[in-house]
Design a protein around this nucleic acid. Sequence first.
DNA 1: GTGAACATGTAAATTGTTACATGATTAC
DNA 2: GTAATCATGTAACAATTTACATGTTCAC
Lengths: 192, 192
Amino acid sequence: MEFQPVYLVDMGKLDVRVLCLGVLSFGDATGYEIRSAIRSALAPFQGASFGSIYPALAKAVAAGEAVPRDPTATVGLEKRVYGITEAGMASLRGALQAARGEETLRSDFLTALFFAHLLRPDDIDRLVDERLGDLRRQYQNLLRQQSSALTEGQRFCIRYNQIVTRAAIDFLSGEGRAIAAAAKRGAGREPD
Amino acid sequence: MEFQPVYLVDMGKLDVRVLCLGVLSFGDATGYEIRSAIRSALAPFQGASFGSIYPALAKAVAAGEAVPRDPTATVGLEKRVYGITEAGMASLRGALQAARGEETLRSDFLTALFFAHLLRPDDIDRLVDERLGDLRRQYQNLLRQQSSALTEGQRFCIRYNQIVTRAAIDFLSGEGRAIAAAAKRGAGREPD
DNA sequence: GTGAACATGTAAATTGTTACATGATTAC
DNA sequence: GTAATCATGTAACAATTTACATGTTCAC
């Protein structure tokens, strides 16, 4: 008797398909527009490229969760606008309700800093600068987003990100600078 | 004339191989121990499973970056202890110096909350609870780590994570609770 | 003796990104 | 006219996780 491997499916993870349905729940959109929406509103904590969005959309249509709207062609020619179906909404709700409150951070910044004793002071400086730059850009984006019309949930996400981003900026521009400076003094003091 | 696809290699990303070398730079270790080290000290911002560590270690040995130590067998039998070579240290330093100050967050928590209007108040409660639980556990781990002997870089990572985790906890136990409560009131008020 | 932790490794499946390939529309 | 943005889609590749497979050592 042979055992076939059994792989778990749908363990409550929010994947590209759910993301697409989520964006469509706000209104009809093209694949391109869905990607734009993800890159602006969901950017700080999600991401998806064309290479995953278009296949996901095709699968959603095959599953009856999304429908291609008639090529109304007010302007575009080959533009494919999708809408979400009742089944799609049910599927989306199900996925969201099955989601876990998970969060994973992948930080090459912290990984590199963890091994700070193997870095040159200049590298530490550069890493802190790069991180601060990203964080400040992100913070500005969050401020900009606040002005648009938003749901309660969207506002919550923005505020959560603002608070966390602010804390990181404050820490890095204070203590972060300090450790870089300390490394520099150390390097200057002992040319051993 | 045909164009061959050109795929970029080694774009400064810190992968499992670098992680293994990094852990080995603190001293000889087995694959199992490397994974334990990653799960404790690097857990908040990195991760690696056996399925990636063992092949990475084998590749590092093939590349002359790591060496299997003689099976001294003080206790173990099949235990394979690895050490880092000079070439390995050079490679590690190179990878760390080429690293970008990048950080990516993937949050099913925020993704779900983004679509809060499609969630039941109880789901919002649960999500906030789960996230707060994770964050508090992580915070306790960070406090515990502080007592051990650490390098400057390790202490920096712990403090950075403490500040950011603290900020998230404070926000969620305050405003996070508030939006869940508001959703509940809203659901109670209009049974429409 | 038995369950937890230690220990190593491979194969399949997953999931996604990047590069390629192609073209229309809009603003300057 | 030309560059940026809009627009769709596929194939190759990458990097990992998960499940499988197999033991040993230690504490109770």
